[in-house]
Design a binder for these strands. Sequence first.
DNA 1: TTAATGATGGGCT
DNA 2: GCCCATCATTAAA
Length: 191
Amino acid sequence: MLNIPRSFYLNDTLSVAKALLGKILVRYLNGKRLAGIIVETEAYLENEESCHAYRGITARTKTMFEEGGIAYVYLIYGMYYCLNIVTESQGKGCAVLIRAVEPVDGIEIMQQLRKKTGLHDLASGPGKLAQAFNITKLDNGLDIAAGTALTIENHNDKDPEIMTTPRIGIKKAKDLPYRFFINGNQFVSQG
DNA sequence: TTAATGATGGGCT
DNA sequence: GCCCATCATTAAA
């Protein structure tokens, strides 16, 4: 039940993306706890084309240049938000996309936010996850390492078996093996 | 079962 | 104007 400190997020992005698997994403919404086990992530490095920060700082991407542990939230396809966690040092411009979690706490609230029943489709994709946790552009720039409204906890479970593949839904740098997920977990997106 | 498509809006080459 | 780190719905097979 321990909030993960900033030092965790200052490590290299690929290591952080893998280390986040099995950790607990926690959101406090109107005093209620929403939580899920992170089962799928993707890394975005500042030196490859598919990274938003690749072309430098803009109004949208300036959050990606904050220091590790800050939330970077952006609107995609006009209707969904994606939650990222900035990694490494201030000014670097890299982050980890949280793609899917396995719901643990606050499942009824997630079902209301998603307008769905059941468990499997609640947060098995980046847009679904943001909807289930009520994450919007208002959360852009929040300090996840500070451990307040939006945070990540380490429950000291054993390290999961990690699978690696190319990232999903991108056109550039599509072959880089920067997607990670927990082997066999049914809440990973796309099967 | 898989494949195709519409929704919807901010950022940018 | 076109692109986009998506999803739910519909159509086809």
